[in-house]
Amino acid sequence: MCHSFARSRPLTLGVELELQLVSLRDFDLTRAATDLLDGLKNDGRHGDVKLEITESMIEINTRPRADVTAIAQDLNALRGLLVLQCARNNVATCGGGTHPFHRWPERRISPGERFAFLSDRYGYLSKQFTVFGQHIHIGVASGNDAIWLTHALNTFVPYFIALSASSPYLDATDTGFQSSRLTAISAFPLSGQAPDIQDWDDFVRHLELLKACGVAQSIKDIYWDVRPKPEYGTVEVRVCDTPLDVDRATEMAAFAQCLASYLLINRPTLTPALQAVVARYNKFQASRYGFNARLADPVNRRALVLGETLDDLLEALKPHAHDLGCSLQIECLKKVLREGASDADWLRKKLTEYSSLPELVRLSTERFTQASSYTSSASRQ
């Protein structure tokens, strides 16, 4: 267990994207990750490309960056590298939180000691875990700040879900959800909201308890919606679907950075135990209804419409976005909210037009090939 917290520069960013690997023949998921990595030449300047739990997944990770322009540059470079390598291997890659029609029993666990351990521990859940998310790391100065920010961000989990939702289809069916991906994660025993831990020392004691009981070997075994990542000196937001393009991924990183800045400066009163009462309900509402979700506010004992409160929040984040150089990204999210134009909505619209799930995946691969519009310094405000 890690007892120390690696200090990092506050509000630095890192992004992980889990991506789909699909066959060009039928656009079903295909077993290609190991072959891709074997031939990939990556100099590491923009981050890493890594295996994930099954061979139909691949993960790209940016380097730690101070602003979203650098994040966009990393994501765009890794996207281009991966698209090129996929073409050489006669496969394609795309975003989206779930593949619309794959069969999970056909998946194969990736090679590696960690993946073998997960497969042994979780059985069929490991293959069902072939879902695709964006994880966002936010730098903090200390372990105590990490615990505080973990609790502070937990209140806003539904907003991350609604803004990133891109998984309406599962098992060749429209689930009726904006994000069906999170149902696969909720099956794991250490998923959900972090418990009401007071500070870093309390967090260490909590991990030691889990280890002593055989529940967890390390922080990697904990799938909280938001969790501290001590070896990086960050807090990690883990509830986002993988977007359909790197621009939306950049916008989600900007949202996380601005929200963390807002929270750390204003230091609102936190009520983790009270929020835990409604956390699962609010996640369900956001996953099911997106911007139309009705969220429970346990502090004021009322229900709120997610889209209305999100609009107010994005307005409040504008000064932070200006200072952090990401006003364009926050304005784009406001447009997404105003027009009801989430990635889930895009997928449903395209399926209505083309009436074919394989064609929908093909269109998603085309969208992922698009270069980022945020890679030049001109995008900074």
Rank of each mutant, 00 (worst) to 15 (best):
F129Q: 15
S287I: 02
D28V: 03
L317G: 07
M252E: 09
G143K: 04
I219S: 13
L324P: 03
R65Y: 07
R227F: 07
V68I: 14
T242I: 02
V237Y: 08
E52K: 11
C326Q: 09
G143V: 02
S376C: 07
K318N: 01
L264R: 06
L274D: 03
V277A: 13
L295A: 10
R348Q: 11
R227E: 08
I136A: 14
S4Y: 04
C332W: 10
L82Q: 09
L207F: 08
S287V: 00
L264F: 05
G97W: 06
A187T: 00
G97S: 09
S372T: 09
Q257V: 02
T30M: 13
S164R: 10
D323H: 10
R108C: 06
T69I: 04
D311I: 00
L263Y: 03
G97T: 09
S186D: 14
V157H: 06
N90S: 11
P272D: 12
R9Y: 06
S8T: 09
E353N: 08
L24S: 04
L81W: 02
V239F: 12
S8M: 02
A212N: 12
P168W: 13
A344M: 02
C240P: 01
N154E: 14
R108H: 08
D120L: 13
T234E: 10
L317W: 05
L153H: 07
D311A: 15
S356R: 04
W104A: 12
R205Q: 11
R79M: 05
R238F: 09
L163C: 05
S364G: 14
K211P: 00
D38L: 13
F160Y: 15
D26A: 12
L209H: 12
Q20N: 11
S372W: 01
L125I: 08
A194I: 04
R248T: 10
L363T: 01
Y232F: 14
R288E: 06
H46F: 10
Y374G: 07
A187S: 12
S372D: 05
E231F: 11
G192W: 03
